[in-house]
């Protein structure tokens, strides 16, 4: 009985939240600046992290964020109110980042692979490393490695899908992911060691 009540209230809260988005979305479609700002404030923080994950530096992330939000505002009519609104915005940001990636596509040189003698547990690292450190490490990756890693790990795409999106072979996608993981792992460990 209690769980049923809880479920009901949770659903109601989610419904209210959805309604709230609907109101903001409709106001944004009508070009009401106040609500556009509100929508930006709601999602810009999280989306900026997404942009940082896909970019080489802070400025590039800012560009992706700006382009992405302009697309969000101009394409709001296309949002069908099915599924997550945040997911929809995130997808626009990721696609904007991919577009940027394709524009600036150059041949990347593999980063140097570090050798580590010590090995640390996952828990040790998690407690010592911040989101900013992770983002910094990711930005040091070559753009293609980083993009493949993000699409696979954070967006849940398969190698086939990644190969189609980035116009590379499935094999390249797999090898890029493997290299990205190795580099990231070693950099994270290195950071952790430095801090210690």
């Amino acid at each position: 009985m209690l769980s049923a009540c809880l479920l009901y209230f949770c659903e109601k809260i989610i419904e209210d939240l959805k309604q709230d988005y609907t109101k903001i979305i409709n106001a944004c479609i009508n070009n009401e600046s106040k609500f556009q700002r509100k929508l930006y404030d709601l999602f810009s923080g999280k989306m900026f992290v997404v942009c940082l994950q896909y970019s080489n530096n802070y400025e590039e992330a800012k560009d992706i964020l700006q382009d992405g939000f302009v697309k969000v505002f101009t394409n709001l009519k296309q949002f069908k109110h099915q599924g997550s609104f945040e997911g929809w915005i995130r997808r626009i940001m990721v696609n904007t980042a991919l577009e940027k990636f394709r524009q600036n596509k150059i041949k990347f040189i593999d980063s140097e692979i570090f050798e580590f003698k010590d090995s640390l547990s996952y828990e040790d690292i998690e407690s010592n490393i911040s989101a900013n450190d992770i983002l910094k490490v990711m930005q040091e990756l070559s753009p293609q490695y980083r993009t493949v890693f993000n699409l696979y790990v954070n967006e849940g795409y398969s190698h086939k899908e990644i190969s189609e999106k980035l116009n590379i072979s499935v094999g390249t996608s797999k090898s890029n992911l493997s290299r990205a993981r190795t580099i990231l792992q070693k950099r994270v460990l290195s950071l952790n060691l430095d801090e210690k």
């Binding site: 923080g45 900026f48 992290v49 940082l52 964020l65 998690e126 989101a131 992770i134 790990v153 990231l184």
Partner: peptide, 16 residues
């Protein structure tokens, strides 16, 4: 490393 990055960055927010 996948889990670490996902966990740390999930729901993390940075002011633009």
């Amino acid at each position: 490393i996948d889990k670490l990055i996902s966990k740390i960055l999930f729901q993390h927010s940075i002011d633009p």
